[in-house]
Design a protein around this nucleic acid. Structure first.
Length: 455
RNA sequence: GGCCCGUUCAUCUAGCGGCUAGGAUGCAUGAUUUUCAGUCAUGAAACGGGGGUUCGAUUCCCCCACGGGUCACCA
């Protein structure tokens, strides 16, 4: 049974890169009929907040990345961690260290000055004459010989010498365990078979494997996924980029489109570009993940989004649009919303634009003064009032009849289609960029058309 | 700086020793003459550099350059 996990720390919203990691972990589990576990790594008491937990959970829900187990919270597993630390203390795979932060800082500085690798000098390993008034930390006794080797499912074989590692702290002086230790105990207890995570964790892996071995625990498989960078190759930044998943919701991106786009970063399946999440799960495997980082291309994301919007049924589209339409105070029942949707769903690459396209059918829009001077000249106004007479006289309110009417009008009044069209659009919709005006007239209905022309 | 990882069009990618190096986004041009959008067609555009291995390297190996990650009582 394949078991993967997603383990965010609740120190902020769900990051777009984390979402990609979650997606791949989830898809790998689903593809293999396995289980996906959510675990909240909240051992950093200073920075973890309930608000962050909630926003991460909300984002996971929005993306519809469901977990089979959890969310587990590490802070609720303290007893277990302490039990394991006690065992390690007893069997000699861990030891108390009484060195103060100041001492350690000094040591580090000296080593850096001598161009040595900063690492703990094991002063407390066998020295028992320490200041017991101090609260000690617990250190893991890392092997000094040999190296740690694992076959990373994305990166291939990686080997790191134990001489690169030092005795890391697994419990702080206040007794709370640290990240690398909790991860190990959790992955073990939760029977995680495949650790899929960002490749910023590659350097933690040998430490974790060493602890796992000291514990006599099985070693899971590791798959380190490449980072997602900005379009200029820099790291994404909170200040400059939309990095929160929910910001994309605000920008009118569909969750399935975001997932589709994210899936194509560092992964591909032939020439496939636009596909459903179900299809993705069927295709997904770790072999096709490219080991190099990818850049986030906002334009392509929105193109993918447009493809998904276009492919939706009107009923589904209306449902996702509902909150936006009600915010605009549209009473959609007054017109044929289905016909409107048919016309506008190809006219935007996000839900906000689509909602605006719908809005001008229902509500008279304010006119841009530039458009007025350009298109609503005295001549144009005369043409429109003549046209209103024709509309008023039309008894058969069908699209074909309206088309015929327009043709007839243009011929008789010696007006070219675009001439009529632009001023008509402006008067009817408040903008010169609309779908075919015959269709707009048809949907609006005679009364609306005459009302708006009269204003 | 040490260690680890990476490098195909501007961007996302296909390629897994022999191809006119394919697709997509974006860009440019044209068509659809009812605007914009959409759609369709066409076009420009890539194997970081240097050594090997081989009959033959984008593909395998080494070196260099560049990019990224990481070196906490953060995760």
């Amino acid at each position: 049974m394949v078991r993967t996990r997603f383990a965010p720390s609740p120190t902020g919203f769900l990051h777009i890169g984390s979402a990609r990691t979650a997606l791949f972990s989830w898809a790998f589990a689903k593809h293999n009929s396995g289980e996906f576990i959510l675990r909240v790594e909240d051992t950093d008491v200073e920075r973890s907040t309930q608000e962050s937990v909630d926003s991460i959970l909300d984002a996971m829900k929005w993306l519809d990345l469901n977990y089979d187990e959890g969310p587990y919270f590490q802070m609720q597993r303290m007893d277990r961690y302490k039990e394991v630390i006690q065992q390690m203390l007893e069997n000699g795979t861990a030891y108390y260290c009484y060195c103060s932060k100041e001492e350690l800082d000094k040591l580090r500085e000296e080593q850096m000055a001598n161009k040595e690798k900063p690492r703990y000098n094991r002063k407390c390993l066998n020295n028992h004459n320490h200041d017991t008034s101090r609260k000690p930390v617990v250190r893991f006794k890392n092997p000094t010989e040999g190296s740690v080797v694992w076959n990373d499912l994305v990166k291939g074989c990686i080997e790191i010498s134990n001489s690169e590692l030092d005795d890391l702290i697994i419990a702080r002086s206040d007794g709370t365990p640290t990240y690398n230790f909790c991860v190990v105990v959790d992955d073990w207890d939760m029977k995680i078979t495949h650790v899929t995570r960002g490749d910023d964790h590659v350097n933690n892996t040998p430490r974790q494997i060493n602890i796992l071995q000291a514990l006599g625990a099985p070693i899971p498989q590791y798959a380190h996924l490449p980072m997602i960078l900005r379009d200029d190759g820099q790291k994404m930044s909170k200040r400059r980029d939309p990095v929160s998943v929910m910001q994309y919701e605000e920008m009118g991106v569909l969750p399935e489109a975001l997932l589709n786009y994210l899936s194509r970063l560092c992964w591909g399946h032939g020439d496939e570009e636009v596909f459903s999440i179900q299809q993705f799960v069927e295709w997904f495997n770790l072999d096709n993940i490219s080991p190099s980082p990818a850049r986030f291309d906002m334009k392509k994301l929105f193109w993918v989004n447009a493809q998904h919007i276009k492919a939706m049924t009107n009923a589904d589209l209306l449902q996702v649009l509902a909150p936006r339409l009600s915010k605009l105070n549209l009473d959609i029942d007054t017109l044929d919303i289905n016909a409107i949707l048919d016309l506008v769903k190809t006219r935007g690459d996000n839900l906000n634009v689509i909602a605006q396209e719908i809005a001008y059918f229902y509500l008279p829009q304010e006119l841009n003064p530039e458009d007025v001077t350009k298109h609503l000249t005295d001549d144009a106004r005369k043409v429109l009032s003549d046209f209103a007479v024709y509309v008023n006289a039309l008894t058969d309110w069908s699209l074909d009849a309206i088309k015929a009417l327009i043709k007839e009008f243009c011929a008789k009044h010696n007006v070219k289609m675009p001439q009529l069209g632009m001023s008509l659009r402006l008067k009817l919709c408040g903008t010169t960029q609309t779908p075919s005006f015959d269709a707009v007239i048809y949907i609006l209905g005679k009364n609306n058309v005459l009302d708006r022309l009269a204003k």
